[in-house]
Every structure is written in C-alpha cells, then in structure tokens.
Design a binder for these strands. Structure first.
Length: 877
DNA sequence: CCAGTCACG
DNA sequence: ACGTACGTGACTGGA
C-alpha cells in the first residue's frame, strides 16, 4: 500500500473556521473559534484518512514574489480581523505542541509550498490530500493528488473531494486549464484582476474551446461573442499578468524533510495543556485519561498517625514553606505543607490528632518560617496568627494582580499557566462532591488535591513574584494588597452586629403591605398570576391590558423599572407593581436574607473578596453588605438594625466625590482643580461653568444635569447614555458634553490619552500601577470596541479610588492597633468606611479616621471626607 | 444554569 | 449603521 500525506492550507482553513464557527472565547477573553474549527476539521480528516504524514503550511505576512511583481495589486487585501489575527500564533503553537510539522517561507504563499510538497510526495509514489477552503488549489489536482474542500454546515462539516477527473466533471476544464479560467475571470479576494467584462461563464467557454489563454489569443479572430473578443484584445497584458498571479508555484526551493512530517501521537501532554487553556472540553476526550498524570505524586507523603505527625512537626526546620488547606463551614478537612517542590506532606485530623492539636502545631510551624506561601492567606488567618511583619506570599492575590479578569484562581490553572504543568483539578479529583462528602467518600482524592495546591504554590511563587516585578506591580502587591489581607480578615472576624428581632419586625411590616398590593394587582389584572415572573407580567401588561409596549428583551417584553415608570402615570396597576417589586426585594434580599446571616454571636460576618473585580475594588458576599438600601427612605430604614455593641458607637466616613477628584488630579485640568480648591458644591460650579450661568443663578435642573455629566465623564461618557439618564435627546446630551469639554479641556485630552494608551499597551492602569487588560479595544466590533474605550476611561479612575481607600484602610487599622484603641474597622463600601468605636474613643477616632482617609493619597485637590457618628448605621451615614 | 431585575458605589 | 453608560451580588422564575 502506498503511503499517504495530508497537507493543510493553514490560513485558509483557519479563515473558514473563523467564519464558520460562532464567536467563542475562553475565560481569559481570548478568541478561540477559529482554532476550534480548525482542529475539528483536522481531526475529522485525520480520523478518516489515517495518513502517514501531515504538514500544515502558512503564508508569511511579507508580500510574495508572485505579487511583488505587480506593485499595483499589492496590499489591497483586507486586513485580517483582530479576532482572527490573534488566533494565528495560538494555532501554530497548538500544532507545534502536537508535534505537527509547520512550513512557511518568506516570499511564498502557502499554496506554493503545498503545490511543491504535493509534487515531491507524488513523485515518491504517495497519495496526497490537500485541505483548503480555497478553490484555487484545484489546479493542483491529479490522479494521485486529491483536493479536499471542507464546508461547515449546520449538520457538521462536509467535505468536497476533487481528483483531476472531478475537476473536469465539475468545471469542464482540467486542473491546468483551471488556472487560465481563473486568470480570465479574476478573483478580487485573491487580487487577481482578470480581464474586464469576462466572467465565469465566458472564461470557461473560452478555455473549453481553446485550452489556454495563449491559444485563445492565437485564434482571436474566431472568438465569439464579439464582446469577449474585444475585451481580450484590449487587455492582453492584464490576462498575462493574471495568469502569473493565478499560477501556483510548484518548484519552490524548499528543503522538505519528509521524516519530520511523519505523523506521531498528537495527543501529547503539551497539547493537552493547550486544550485546557483554550477550554476545548470535548477535545480533551481525545486525550488518554492519564494525561493529567505527572510524576509529582511521588513527592507527596500522607501522615495520619500521631507519632508520624509529631515527628514531622518536631523535625521541621525549613525556613520557607507553602501551606494549603480545605475547609467547609469552619471545619478543616485537610492540610498540606510543601517544604519544597519535592517534598509535600499531607496531615489530617482523626483519632488522637485533634483539630486543636493540628492548629497548634501549624501555628508553631508558621512561627518558625521566614517565608510563608499560601493560596489563601485570609483563610489561613482564621486558624493561625501570622504577624504582619512576616514575609507572606499569597499566590492567588499575585495571580489576580497579573490578570484581574479571571473568574477564579484555581491551583490547576496556576500550574498550567505558570508552570506549564497539568495537574488534576478539584473537579477531576472530587467531581461535584462537597468537601464534607469528599472527606467521607474519597479521602485520598482530597489529600491529593491539597497536596497539589501546596505544591503549585511553592513551585510557582518565584515566577509570580518575577512577573509582578516585570509589570512594576511589586509595590502595589507589597504595600497595598498584602497588608489589606489582614484588614479584611479582621473585618470578617469582627462582623457587624444586627438586631434579629428588629429585622423580623421590619419584615413582618413589609409582608402586610405586600399582600394588600397582591390582592389589588390581581383584581386590576382580572386574574391571579406570578407578579415576580417578568414573562407572565409582560403578558398581563402588554397583551391582556394592551399597554403600549416599550422596549423588548431577547426573551420578551421588558418590564424593567424605567419602562414601568413611564406607564405608571396612566395605569394605577403599574404603580402598584413597582411598589410590590420594591417591597418584595426588601423582604427577600434584606429582611429575610440578612436575618439568615446573623451568626450565634449576633453579628453578620460577610466575606470580603479581594480577587473578584476587574478594577481593584473589593466585593462583599454572603451577605453583600455593600448594597444595603439607602436611596429610598423605606429601604434606608433597614440600616437601623445595624448597631454597635454595648458601650460602642458607629463612626462612618465617606469620601466626597472621590472619583471626580481623582479625575481632576490625574488629568491635571487646571479649571477642575481650581473649582475644587474654592468650592463646596462641585456640581453647582460645573453647572455654572458649563451653562455659562452665574453661580447664584444656577437652577436645580442645571445642577442636576451637571451632576449627571460629571457621572457620565467618570463612566466613559456617551451621548446616548447621558440622554437616557436625563431623559433628553441625544443632540442635547451631545451639547452638554461638548460644552463640558470646552470648560475642562484638560479632561478631554486626558480621557483621549487613556484610550490611546490602553490601545497601545493593551491595558488600563491606575496611579498605583494596578492594571486591567482591555482586550475589547482590539475588537473589530464597534460595540465591543466602544465598550473597551469606556473601560479604558473608567478603570483608571475607579481603580485609583479603590487603591486610595485601600491605603486608608491599612493605615486606619494600623493606627487603631498601634495606639491600642478598642475601636475596629468593620465595613468598607467603596468610598465609605464604618468603624465600631468605643464610646470613650469616639471623638478621637472620628478625627483619626477622617485624617487617614484625607491623607491616604497626595493629590492636586484635597480629598474631602464626611464623617459622622450614630447609634446605628442609619444615623451614622 | 441563565436571564431579568434591582439593591449599592 | 452599529445600540450603550462604569463596577458589583442576591433573588426569582423557567428552560
């Protein structure tokens, strides 16, 4: 049997796949659809053909010799979409990881290389398959060389096959003649001009009759119809040039080592890493199950017995170690200590080994370390005391700073991205089991998981630190993020006192009104239905009651508040629905939700997450204490249930327009800076300047508009957004913006620079060096790109404000501690800090808090802080 | 598990 | 022409 080679036209198939597969990105935001489609096509062909050799050819970006000869036709090709361009290098890396031979050569197109190699293989007696989306390649078809053109259809990929005979059958001409047809008719996508006035039909007829362009010219006089004859006559040079352009060069001086193209096992560990990274889950099934196998497990030791564990701790002398553990509901299920990347020990409670004993031992172990590495320092601090002076490395926080866009920072991702190593993930090891169940049902898997995590931490930490250095983020990491861990840990531990009985009373009061509304709504609707279902509500309002239907969503009618508010004046039922919505929200999320979160100590211990937001803010969960109602009076009353413990008061301080002040500083706009230097009311001054009105004469409406513009500026202004917010026309909004930028020209220049800088660098950056990648800026999609521009304008501002309040938190905490005050920082709400202060420290702490917040950053404008105390959060804010 | 809605800065 | 404000988290209903 003769040997078989498959040759793939890289760019052509990638291009096909790009347009044939719907947009797809992995969680890092990398586009992956073309690579995905390419691999699918390739696997299908390989499964079918089982070739002995495989090679993929790519074009080089340099102009080819063929095209260089004709300057005029160079460079008219459309540039590749960014979403596709970014996938080309990835594609090549994936192929390389699979051990597939790639050929490319400056000055030649992939076609030329494919033609040349096909010729060589044919001479050696091989069967050749060329895979391309491009019909030009049909000219290469012979009895042994098959051209295969994949078509992406809804039913999957179908492939059209052409040997020389099939070309004749389909196009009436031989592969050689096909060149001439193509040259006559031209091909705009390939920059082949062709002969004007001659299309596919005429070209085919001519070549069927005369076999070649040259012969057609030799018989020019006989040619009919007349038009074709004249066209040919007048554009002879065009025809010749087109033929040169259309002819694939099959004698490229390339040294092609057939053995290097020999098809080996594609399913390599390196390729597996790529599949994981690209998140091609169904491709992973092609890899053998043991692909995640590595030889690390020989370094893992599991100790269960008291004497082994005692020996381990007694003999422990390392100065650097990674500590990792898993807990659930406060119970620690397992702990691993990595002394080096060749020595990981797993320890667990049970029998004589009590949790208390283990904690004590780990405490001692940590005390003895110079460097403590962990994936979750805040979590560790719940069990172990670690002085803030200790050199600690939190690998999750490091990874977050390097890329804040990820949804999660798991050890298996870290191992893959930093170490290029596949380790089994939590899902691989435990499946969907909860930790508690896993501890009972498959303890070995849990042991492995914790060991892998500790291993990954210690093995990756140097590279993480190096990357932080490289990105100039070491200071941000050392002086803001790491110290903040201790602040957040304390805040979580401390919690906020909440009065359960009061909360329940509040809830009960809501319930009464809710059922009244319910009855009335059903009556007005003429039937009962689920008011909480936007779908059912939409049907009632817009179909049954025939209300003018405003906006629509993907799934049906929009019943969002802004739509309902427009209908409310005309339909009493709508006002009732709005009130119903408001009350049920308060009941379910706040009254009931918060009550469930009150711990036995009478306090709510929220979790503050430091690695969630793209901008550098912190977030709060279970419960979210950063969105407690305040804007509406009824909701605001909830704040009365948040109270300090006996003998204490609340002190609440918030920054006044911190983001706008950050903007004034960063932009250096003299007018805005000056406005802040003299003024109490920045929105009024803005209104006065923007609307050319004396300060005293500014109306409430003008002030409100100016305020909206100020907000808009911080969000990355768009006339549409502003017009929506103010219920004005786009034109009017444009006018406001233009006049704002005239007043503050430095702001305009600054915002433009933020966008160009982010475009150039690929990320937006805060004053303190925090970065946020903005891949959207490179999108060819207008909407995506505009979004990227707004991100580029907003992130440095929001992020810098976040940096500043973090600095304030660290300083406030350190001062409270250093001065041995009893008062504690307990909450942060983006521009606001809440302290539970001992009554006798009230005045001092008020000053301390305001001072530390004001001086957290040295800006061109002062940072104003409003500070207030009270017997509950309602009063203090 | 996602979409819609709404609470906050 | 495109179709929008920036950043979060919790709850509900309905595939």
């Amino acid at each position: 049997m003769s040997k078989k080679i498959v040759l793939i036209d890289g760019h052509s198939i990638l291009n096909r796949a790009f347009f044939g597969v719907p947009p797809l990105t992995n969680s890092e935001g990398l586009h992956t659809n073309a690579v995905y489609g390419f691999l699918n096509i390739m696997f299908k062909i390989l499964d079918e053909e089982k070739p002995d050799y495989l090679t993929v050819a790519f074009d080089r970006s340099e102009p080819t010799f063929r095209h260089q000869m004709f300057d005029a036709y160079k460079g008219t090709r459309k540039p590749m979409a960014q979403e596709l361009r970014e996938q080309v290098p990835v594609m090549k890396e994936v192929l390389q990881a699979m051990g597939i031979k790639i050929v490319e050569m400056p000055g030649y197109e992939a076609d030329d290389l494919l033609g040349t190699i096909a010729g060589m293989a044919e001479v050696q007696g091989m069967d050749v398959s060329i895979i391309s989306g491009d019909r030009d390649l049909l000219q290469l078809a012979t009895e042994k060389v098959k051209i295969r053109i994949p078509k992406t259809k809804r039913t999957g990929t179908e492939i059209e096959d052409y040997y020389a005979a099939d070309v004749v059958e389909r196009y009436q001409v031989t592969p050689k003649e096909f060149i001439d047809v193509k040259a006559l008719m031209g091909d705009s996508s390939d920059n082949i001009p062709g002969v004007p006035g001659i299309g596919e039909k005429t070209a085919t007829n001519l070549i069927v009759a005369y076999k070649s362009i040259e012969n057609a010219y030799a018989h020019l006089e006989e040619i009919t119809p007349k038009r074709a004859k004249t066209n040919l006559e007048e554009h002879y040079d065009m025809a010749q040039m087109s033929k040169t352009l259309a002819t694939i060069e099959v004698h490229v001086p390339i040294e092609f080592d057939m053995e290097a193209a020999k098809l080996t096992d594609l399913y390599t560990p390196e390729a597996y890493v790529y599949m994981k990274r690209l998140e091609f889950k169904n491709m992973l099934t092609r890899f053998s199950d043991d692909m995640s196998q590595n030889d690390l497990e020989k370094y893992f030791h599991v100790y269960h017995e008291l004497d082994e564990i005692q020996n381990f701790f007694d003999g422990f002398s390392a100065k650097e170690a990674a500590v990792s553990f898993f807990e659930e509901a406060g119970i620690v299920y397992g702990l691993a200590v990595a002394k080096s990347n060749q020595n990981v020990v797993y320890l667990t409670c049970g029998g004589f080994v009590t949790e208390g004993y283990l904690e004590e031992q780990v405490q001692k172990l940590c005390d003895g370390l110079d460097t403590l590495i962990t994936p979750d320092l805040k979590g560790l601090l719940k069990h172990v005391r670690v002085p803030e002076t200790k050199n600690c490395i939190d690998t999750t926080i490091a990874a977050y700073l390097l890329n804040p866009l990820k949804n999660e920072y798991t050890y298996d991702d870290l191992a893959r991205d930093i170490l290029g190593l596949m380790v089994p993930s939590k899902l691989d090891l435990l499946g969907k089991l909860k930790i508690k169940k896993a501890a009972e049902e498959k303890p070995e898997a849990l042991e492995l998981m914790v060991c892998y995590e500790a291993y990954t931490c210690i093995a990756a930490k140097n590279q993480l630190l190096e990357q932080l250095e490289d990105h100039d983020m070491k200071k941000l990491y050392d002086e803001i993020e790491m110290p903040l861990v201790y602040v957040l840990a304390d805040m979580e531990k401390e919690g906020v006192r909440a009065e359960k009985a009061e909360l329940e009373a509040y809830g009960a009061q809501l319930t009464g009104r809710i059922s009244e509304l319910e009855t009335s709504i059903y009556e007005k609707a003429g039937e009962t239905f689920n008011i909480n279902s936007p779908k059912q509500l939409g049907v009632i309002l817009f179909e049954k009651l025939q209300m003018p239907n405003g906006k629509k969503t993907k799934t049906g009618y929009s019943t969002a508040a802004d739509v309902l508010e427009r209908l409310a004046p005309d339909y009493p039922i709508v006002s009732e629905i709005l009130e119903y919505r408001q009350l049920t929200k308060l009941k379910s999320t706040y009254a009931d939700g918060l009550a469930l979160c009150i711990a036995p100590d009478g306090r709510i211990h929220s979790t503050f997450n430091q690695t969630i937001t793209a901008t550098g803010r912190i977030s709060s969960t279970e419960p979210n204490l950063q969105n407690i109602p305040i804007r509406m009076e009824l909701g605001r009353l909830i704040r009365k249930v948040f109270v300090p413990k006996e003998g204490y008061v609340f002190i609440d301080a918030d920054y006044s327009q911190i983001e706008l002040r950050v903007l004034a500083h960063m932009s250096g706009d003299q007018n805005l800076i000056a406005a802040y230097q003299h003024a109490e009311d920045i929105h009024r001054i803005t209104a006065s300047q923007v609307f050319h009105t004396p300060l005293e004469a500014v109306t409430d409406l003008q002030r409100r508009n100016a305020k909206a513009v100020n907000f808009g500026i911080v969000y990355g202004i768009s006339s549409f957004g502003l017009s929506q917010d103010l219920s004005i026309t786009r034109k009017e909004a444009e006018g406001y913006i233009a006049s704002y930028f005239e007043t503050y020209p430095g702001i305009k220049i600054f915002l433009d620079r933020l966008v160009t800088d982010a475009k150039e660098k690929g990320y937006a950056e805060t004053m303190f060096g925090r970065r946020r990648p903005v891949p959207e800026l490179a999108s060819s999609n207008f909407m995506q790109r505009s979004f990227g521009e707004r991100i580029a304008m907003n992130s440095p501002i929001q992020g810098t404000a976040a940096d500043i309040i973090k600095i304030a938190m660290i300083r406030v905490k350190q001062r409270l501690e250093r001065e041995q005050l009893k008062s504690k920082l307990i909450l942060q709400v983006h521009d606001e800090l809440l302290i539970e202060a001992a009554a006798d420290e009230e005045e001092y702490v008020k000053t301390l808090l305001a001072e530390e917040m004001r001086h957290a950053a040295d800006l061109a404008v002062t940072l104003e802080v409003d500070v207030k105390s009270g017997r509950n959060w309602f009063e203090a804010h």
